[in-house]
Structures are given as C-alpha cells and as structure tokens.
Simulated assay, not measured.
Amino acid sequence: MSVQKRPNGVWRARYRDSGGKEHAKHFKRKIDAQAWLDEVTASVVTGTYVDPGRARVTVEAFFAEWSQRQVWADNTVTAMSLAVRTCSFASISIGDVRRSHVETWVKRMQADGLAASTIRTRVGNVRSVLRGALRDRLISHDPSDGVKLPRIRRAEHAMRIPSPDEVGVVLHAAPEHFRLFIAVCAFAGLRLGEAAALQLGDVHFLKRQLHVARQVQRAVSGQIALSAPKHGSERIVSIADDLSTMIARHADELGVRGREQWLFTGPKGEPPHQNTVGYWWRKTLEHAGVEPFRLHDLRHFYASGLIASGCDVVTVQRALGHAKATTTLDTYGHLWPTAEDRTRAAAGELMRASRGPSRLQAEGGPRL
C-alpha cells in the first residue's frame, strides 16, 4: 500500500488485494488519498473488504450465478425468480444498491395493491440474494436491513372462518366432481395444491387415513408441476368415517380404480391447476349465494373445529402439516381458550354443581 504524488500533481493511492490484483484511486489532496487507503486497510482487518470490480455485477446477474449453487425445491426456485425479476433495482450493480432503492421498491408494490404478506415474502427473497452477496464479499453490508415493511393484519382480524351452515350450503351447491375437493379441504385441512394432487392410493380406507404426499405447483411450460408438500409437510391425516365413505363413493362414480389415478382431474386429465380450481370455486360460490370466502378458509374452518374439540397445539400442528408449533400458534393461537376462559368455565361448573338442594336443606336445616 502506498500514496504517491504523480507528475501532474494528483495523489495516487494504491494497494494489492489478497489475490495480488492492484487497485488504485486518484485524489487532489494527499490527506484524502491516505484516508481512502486507511479505510481499505480497516476493511481488510475487520473482514469487510469488498473487491470493487466484483461489486459491479448486477443484482439479476449475481442471482443467476448464485442461485445455481443453492439447494432449493422447485417452488422455491419459482418464488425467488419471481421476486428478483419484479425487483425494481434488478439491473443495478449490486455494489450500488442502497436502502433507498429497497424502500422505493416496497412503496411501488404497495401502490400496485400487493398484499402485505406478498410484499414481505418478495423482500425476504431478495434479501436472501443480498445476503448471499454479502457472504461472498461482493458488498460490505445488506442495504435491505432496517427497511420498514407493511404490517400484516393480526390473524384474528384477517381470518375469515366460514360457519358450518355456510360450508354445508357450499357443499350442497358444488357440482359432483368438485364436492369431494371441498370436503377434503374442510374436513381434512388440505391446502388447495395438496387436494389437487390426491391419488386413490393415498387413501387408507380401513385405517381411515389420508396420506398427503405431494402438491400441484404452478404450471411450467404448459405442464402441471408436482412437488413435495409445502415446507416438507408430508403427513398422515386421520379422517372421519363419513369422509372416507364420501371418497369411496366419489371414486366409484367417477371410475377411479388404480392406486395412482388422480381423484380430481382438469380438462386434460391431469390434476387440476389452481386456476381451474379457482374457476370451479367461484362458480360454486355464485350458485350457493353465500357471502364469499376463500377456498383456503376451509383450512381455517378445519383448524378451528379441532381446537374447539379440545385438540392440543401439537395435534393441530401435525394435522395441518405446519413445520413448527409456533406457526400453528401464530396463526390460530387466538382460537384456543385463555387462562381467563378456563377460570371462568371452572367457576361456572362450581356454581352449577352448587345449585341443587343441599343435604342440610333436605334434613330441615341446621341444628342448633
């Protein structure tokens, strides 16, 4: 490292990195040249040194190279690619990305009407890319740190749980081929993609169990894509006798015989894509004449039923296929009775038990 004065009067500061490559910068004043060199020296000592040349790669170019080294499921690849592709600073050199770029992107997504959860997911995915660049020493800090994101409504306010009567009306209004689909979402808690990917072999009729082994993903190049359930939530769900009977009747009426045959099919004989299911659902709601709710709300309906019946957190977690019990509590914690509720119920039981005629009253009152 050195600072030297050039013949033209400009001060040249230079150093060599760990790979032997020389870097230089020119300044009008010696003090500025030395300050820059001191800053570089400090970054080398603290381990935050960044090669200026490597930082010139764009965000999208770095993602294209970095993503090839990541061990991801197909749905993660799709989500990450979408986030980077729609990122407003994807074409900027990664070393030039500032916090203001991220804040502007968040504001634009809000203006476009994206849900708070969607914005948070996309920012989180891009943040993973930036932190990958940080670990690879392309940048010295993560510019997305501390960026304020839109708040997600609390679960108890955002959640719409249909009533049993509403579910019954919708089931009655649904066409025959779609009725069972609604039932496995409402009475087994399956996600849309999981229900769409059910095969006859996934049903164990004697044990009354349903094996959730796969899910339908977004179509890729016109083809239906299948993957493992979300977040590794492959599971066995215990189902009611009536649902088991309903599955058997559905399979018989539609001619589903082989173990690997799909219980539900789209126009091409493949498992139905989410757009197809969405169309069936909208038509069913129109015919039912109920206040609209999402197909995914049937999963909330199922969870609320388990909780109301006294199922503990771990039981509900396993039935829904949540990776962690904290996810279940974050989503449905408000549905479990609180300590105050239990105290109130216990006091009520004491009162009810004390309302009958006492032994003393039956014997004519106390003796003096």
Results as ranks from 00 to 15, higher is better:
Arg99Cys: 00
Thr104Tyr: 00
His101Trp: 07
Val77Cys: 11
Ser88Lys: 13
Asp74Lys: 14
His101Cys: 00
Arg85Gly: 12
Phe63Lys: 06
Gln70Val: 04
Ala90Val: 11
Met80Trp: 15
Lys107Gln: 12
Arg135Tyr: 11
Ser67Ile: 11
Gln68Tyr: 07
Ile92Tyr: 10
Asn125Ser: 11
Val71Phe: 07
Ser128Gly: 07
Ala133Gln: 01
Met80Gln: 15
Ser100Leu: 12
Arg135Phe: 08
Leu138Met: 10
Met80Ser: 15
Val123Leu: 09
Val106Cys: 01
Gly124Gln: 03
Arg69Pro: 05
Leu134Trp: 03
Val106Met: 02
His101Lys: 01
Phe89Asn: 06
Thr76Ile: 09
Met109Leu: 06
Gln70Tyr: 06
Ser88Ala: 14
Val126Pro: 00
Ala73Met: 13
Ile94Tyr: 06
Ala111Glu: 09
Ile119Arg: 00
Val123Asn: 09
Ser93Thr: 02
Ala79Glu: 14
Arg131Trp: 01
Ala79His: 14
Gln110Ala: 07
Ile94Met: 10
Asn125Tyr: 12
Glu65Thr: 10
Ile139Val: 10
Asp112Trp: 01
Ala64Asp: 12
Arg131Asn: 13
Arg99Glu: 01
Ala90Met: 10
Ser93Trp: 02
Ser93His: 05
Arg131His: 04
Ala90Thr: 13
Ala83His: 14
Thr121Gly: 03
Arg135Gly: 15
Gly124Met: 04
Ala79Ile: 13
Thr104Arg: 10
Ser81Pro: 09
Thr104Met: 02
Arg69Tyr: 08
Arg99Ala: 03
Asp112Cys: 02
Val77Phe: 11
Arg131Phe: 00
Val77Glu: 12
Ala64Lys: 08
Ala73Ser: 14
Leu134Lys: 08
Arg137Cys: 04
Ser88Gln: 13
Ala79Ser: 15
